[in-house]
Design a protein around this nucleic acid. Structure first.
Length: 1081
RNA sequence: GGCCCCGUGGCGGAAUGGCAGACGCAGCGGACUUAAAAUCCGCAGCCCGUAACUGGGCGUCCGGGUUCAAGUCCCGGCGGGGCUACCA
């Protein structure tokens, strides 16, 4: 940075009032103090003094930061600057705007930083928050101070705990489609309106049984489930916090699946609504898609496969999205963890050795020739599978493994026996943890069947193959088609007719027969090879097809027929056919679906299953319930205690907040032993964990829950607290909520603009929607969704440099061959050197660890924060990721300097605008700019706003002196982007005198934004391009608003055009008034 | 493997289907200056031609298509990025 050309080098003596970095700094400090003093950003709530309910409201929100110890780099505030500009614009256009900033200060980062520095997290958190406040204030961000919250503040987390209790005391009424208080369920059970899940009626249940019946319905519940246990972090993690290769998102430590007793939130109850309510939200489509994928709704059916040999004739319930392929289910697979495995596995291999060898076990570690009994094989395979999932599942080509259980199930539709396997490609957590395998029509089943030598049966054919099959089996069932069967088949398929629908059949059939993925590609190949008439093309198609038949090994008609009779067409194809088609080989004793399309067949089988009582159509979701407890210190304590029998009791509201106890040693117990048990740090606070309470039945001794909540808890609802930060009676007052969150018509979400990075697409944004919906159902908030409009800002990226060992080096010391600093000349390619050693450049994130971070404080000191704000916006569209280039900042700085110089005398510091009225031309430029800038502001196009203001200023700088009217409008338009210099100019130029003479409240923050006069923006005459045959040939000038007739006449009169069209027949003339003329000759 | 997004000068980027490259950085030329910085004015996609121009051609990753007109819409390919990954 030291080699930056110093912008203030002109020296104060020559231009004492030039807009230098030093002057910018003074102006910025002055106005930041003054804005604080007058509470400039205060937005009164309904009922408060100064509230004006006639103005429309806007809630502009940032994803709040966690206060890290390392400080900000210039990438962090990008979104904050954008929302600040937008909020300032909205204030100036007559809106009540709530805009605040809080701190997400519980959780792993704060705790890890505390552990590193050996300081209590409360201390480090407070210090970091204070630090961050200073950094953010320095950027001139107009946040309302009184609304700032911190999730670690007991007055805040009191309500986090309160919301937890609301969720705990609620259940999901599926019929009503919403959450309801648990006591309503209790009342319904007591009155007999609802029956308990089991056999036993409510009236004869013991208190304990009743409690557990209720517990089973709660939206927050305790359960022992396989969870992601990370011994190095000493905590369990949510699925969302584990990366694809089985490591922790934070710290990248190994994660193991372990069954542990944990708090869980029943987010799955909301799966359907979380999916449906995405539709009306104004969110980026990719984010919606990511949420849809995460929720993962799939329609299908459950099917019962009876297992007759077991005691009590149990059955295996499988889930399939393809019930139409039930006839092709040639085996059943359970996940290794499936509950039924133990009861079905047999002592001996059945039928004394008649089973294929691979069924006995061929997975790594299995003995040569397989195991001696299913029992051994299953036990060994289970051990193998659980160990395997412990290691990171190295992505990609995973060999299918599994073993036969010795047992058979009955395919309900065929009545035939199918073998039951266990295999780890079936997941315990999805669907029913068991599948029916249809190898002919599922890639995974196909692979497994090939490996274990299981039967494969085609039951769905692509349409053309279905037609071939019909030809083979029915049109010429006895083989009389030979020897010219291929021609006959061609005729049968319609190649020689001119029927259009047959052409269409070809389009579909050919690529499939050719086994090509790309239909259009295949067709083009044919078209290119076959010039001439349709008939000739068909001839070419036919010969290609005949060749194809040969290449598939179909030597004779009988061959073809045999292939279809045995339902082994997959052999020729060599892979599963997973696309829809026509059902075949699908006739059973009580149902046939042969000839049906896949859609119709699904429906028919679903109905049949329900009718026969062996299944039903169902919907399954990928979304799992949300693991909500962590074995960490720095989190919200659960307002839960356990009695001597280990039953959970909720604390009453009046005992909130339940304070996090101070601990000497707050460190988690980390271990590299995967079997180390979780030990929450709070368990060591013995004085805290054991407590005497009266929960309604006298004083008793209880033990507190020692887990804490995940750091998502606070971020699930913080935006609501911004609205009513000091409310003692509710998390947010009803009037306050309905005003600020209140939906405009057609909107279901409350926040009008929410800006943040994509990394929260499925974590924070899904959890927050879930909590908000529960609060909505229980009547605590007025909108069904929290965030109506979401905007994903891009990232500021940067170059980083690595030496030969792969270690990052200080990017700002890397040099080019000519000795220049590489970061100052980013458009120059290498080679690069660092202390004489060669280094390589890479492009990506900015960060301390990459040694390429630029701190906003540096930039503010060097240019002022207004310049930094302008630059960050001018870099490009907000949603795009773009490279930081310190050198480019000069352009933004020069822009502000030129604005200043245009309006202020650099010698005297006084205004140099003129009171003269602006010329027609200046007014035109001005009002065009207002129109354009307003349009860009509305769509968050802050980069093009800067361009337009530069253009306006460039125009004004050509004038001898800037007219006041134009200066005034330009200052107002500049105010959202560069509030400090605009405020200063406002006072010096528009209001006159020095700032100190002004009554403090009259700040530009609440001035009205300029309004364009369309008539002034209109041109007198316009230049119109004239093209001939789409090529630009000349330009004409006509009065604005000329009719098409006038424009065309002028275009014909143009010398050059006249020459070009002379003697040619003009087929068509396109005239778009005000835009262009095109002659088609 | 599946799904999604993106490819425009030396660089960041503009462009409701209607003059591609606004605006800025870097660059070049000039003015001012003893000189430099700063500032101001001008040039600037590539190729060819001209004394000059308001001259000609090619240009938004590549190949097709739709259209009077395509950076923009459609199909196919190549390249880059993101998400997801045995979800039955």
């Amino acid at each position: 940075m030291s080699s930056e050309p110093t912008p203030s080098s002109s020296g104060p003596e020559s231009f004492p009032h030039r807009y230098s970095a030093a002057l910018a700094g003074r102006i910025e400090a002055l106005w930041q103090d003054r804005w604080d003093l007058v509470d400039a950003y205060r937005a009164p709530n309904p009922g408060e003094a100064g509230f004006d309910g006639s103005r429309p409201k806007k809630f502009v929100l940032d994803m709040f930061p966690y206060p890290s110890g390392v400080g900000l780099h210039v990438g962090h505030p990008l979104g904050y600057i954008a929302t600040d500009i937008y909020a300032r614009y909205l204030r100036m256009t007559g809106h009540n705007v709530v805009h605040a900033m809080g701190f997400d200060s519980f959780g792993l980062p704060a705790e890890q930083y505390a552990v590193q520095t050996g300081t209590h997290p409360r201390i480090t958190t407070e210090k970091n928050i204070a630090n961050m406040r200073v950094q953010l204030r320095r950027l001139g961000l107009g946040h309302e101070r009184r609304r700032s919250v911190s999730t670690t503040d007991p007055e805040f987390y009191r309500w986090t705990q309160w919301i937890f209790l609301q969720i705990y005391h609620a259940w999901y009424d599926v019929e009503a489609g919403r959450a309801r208080p648990i006591r309503e369920l209790e009342a319904m059970l007591a009155s007999g309106e609802r029956a308990p899940r089991g056999e036993k009626p409510w009236s004869v249940m013991s208190a304990l049984e009743r409690a557990s019946e209720l517990d089973a319905h709660r939206l927050a519940y305790v359960d022992e489930v396989p969870v992601n246990w990370c011994p190095m972090l000493g905590t369990v993690l949510a699925n969302e916090e584990v990366t694809a290769d089985g490591r922790s998102e934070r710290g990248n430590y190994p994660v193991y699946r372990r069954p542990l007793k944990q708090w869980i939130m029943r987010i799955t109850a909301y799966a359907e609504r979380l999916l449906q309510d995405l539709e009306p939200l104004d969110w980026p489509e990719p984010i919606k898609l990511m949420q849809r994928n995460w929720i993962g709704r799939s329609e299908g059916a459950e099917v019962e496969f009876g297992v007759p040999d077991t005691k009590g004739a149990q059955s295996i319930r499988v889930f399939t999205t393809r019930p139409d392929t039930l006839f092709g289910a040639t085996y059943v697979v359970l996940s290794p963890e499936h509950a039924l495995v133990d009861s079905i596995v047999t002592q001996e291999w059945p039928a004394g050795g008649a089973i294929p060898a691979p069924w006995r076990g061929t997975f790594p570690g299995a003995p040569q020739g397989g195991f001696t009994s299913p029992k051994n094989a299953v036990a060994a395979y289970r051990a193998y599978a659980s160990k395997k999932s412990d290691e990171q599942r190295t992505g990609g080509g995973t060999e299918k493994t599994g073993v036969f259980t010795g047992a058979y199930a009955i395919n309900p539709v065929t009545g035939k026996q199918v073998p039951i396997f266990i295999a780890d490609y079936v997941l315990a957590g999805y669907g029913t943890g068991a599948i029916m395998a249809v190898p002919a029509h599922d890639d995974r089943d196909f692979e497994f069947a090939r490996t274990l030598q299981l039967p494969i049966r085609d039951v769905v054919y692509p349409r053309p193959i279905a037609a071939m099959r019909y030809f083979a089996l029915h049109a010429y069932p006895t083989g009389e088609a030979a020897p010219d069967w291929r021609d006959q088949l061609a005729d049968f398929m319609g190649i020689t007719t001119s029927n259009a629908s047959k052409d269409e059949a070809w389009d579909v059939m050919l690529p499939i027969v050719l086994n090509r993925r790309s239909r259009a590609g295949a067709m083009r190949g044919v078209e290119l090879d076959a010039p001439g008439s349709i008939g000739e093309r068909r001839g070419a198609v036919r010969s290609i097809w005949v060749e194809t038949i040969d290449s598939l090994g179909l030597r004779s008609f009988d061959d073809l027929r045999a292939r279809f009779e045995e339902a082994r067409f997959w052999e020729a194809r060599g892979e599963a056919h997973t696309e829809p088609g026509i059902a075949a080989n699908s006739s059973g004793p009580s149902i046939t679906i042969d000839g049906m399309t896949t859609g119709a067949a699904k429906h028919a089988v679903g109905e049949w299953l329900a009718r026969e009582g062996v299944g039903r159509p169902t919907v399954t979701f990928k979304l799992r319930d949300w693991l909500f407890s962590r074995q960490r210190y720095w989190g919200e304590p659960f307002p839960i205690v356990y009695d001597e029998w280990g039953r959970a009791h909720a604390l009453p509201e009046k005992m909130l907040p339940l304070l996090l106890p101070d601990l000497e040693d707050f460190r988690p117990e980390s271990s590299d032993d995967p079997d180390a048990p979780p030990r929450p740090p709070l368990a060591r606070a013995s004085a805290w964990t054991t407590v005497e309470l009266d929960l309604g039945d006298g004083k008793r001794t209880y033990t507190r829950e020692t887990n804490t909540m995940p750091n998502w808890a606070g971020s699930c609802w913080y935006y609501l607290r911004y609205l009513d930060p000091t409310n003692q009676n509710a998390l947010v007052g009803k009037d306050v909520d309905s005003y600020w969150m209140g939906g405009t018509s057609g909107k279901i979400g409350g926040v009008d603009l929410y800006v943040g990075g994509v990394e929260h697409a499925v974590l924070h944004l899904l959890y927050a929607r879930f909590w908000h919906k529960v609060l909505f159902d229980l009547g605590h908030v007025s909108t069904a969704e929290p965030f109506q409009t979401l905007f994903n800002q891009g990232y500021i990226q940067a170059f980083a440099f690595k030496d030969a060992r792969g270690v990052y080096v200080d990017a700002f010391e890397v040099r080019l061959p000519d000795g220049a600093l590489a970061m100052e000349h980013q458009d120059k390619p290498g080679p690069y050197t660092y202390s004489g050693e060669p280094v390589t450049r890479e492009y990506g994130k900015m960060g301390k660890s990459l040694k390429n971070a630029v701190a906003p404080d540096e930039i503010c000191a060097h240019y002022g924060c207004d310049t930094m704000r302008i630059y960050e916006m001018a870099m490009g569209p907000l949603e795009a990721s773009k490279p930081w280039n310190t050198r480019d900042i000069a352009g933004s700085f020069r822009f502000l300097q030129r604005v200043w110089r245009n309006l202020i005398d650099e010698q005297t510091g006084l205004s140099r605008v003129t009171q003269d009225a602006p010329t027609r031309a200046t007014l035109r430029v001005l009002h065009k700019t207002i129109i354009g800038v307003r349009r860009d502001m509305e769509k968050l196009g802050f980069n093009t706003v800067v361009s337009k203001l530069i253009e306006l200023n460039n125009h004004l700088s050509e004038l001898p002196a800037v007219p006041l009217e134009a200066a005034r409008a330009m200052i107002l338009m500049l105010a959202p982007h560069a509030p400090h210099v605009s405020e200063e100019l406002w006072h010096r130029v528009v209001r006159g005198g020095t700032p100190d003479e002004r009554e403090a409240r009259e700040t530009i923050v609440h001035e009205a934004y300029p309004i364009a006069d369309e008539s002034l923006a209109r041109d007198d005459e316009v230049e119109i391009p004239v093209s001939v045959l789409g090529k630009l040939r000349s330009k004409i000038v006509v009065p604005a608003g000329s009719s098409a007739v006038v424009i065309e006449a002028a275009a014909r009169a143009d010398a050059k055009i006249a020459e070009l069209i002379a003697g040619k027949e003009i087929k068509k003339v396109i005239v778009v008034p005000g835009k262009m003329v095109n002659f088609v000759v």
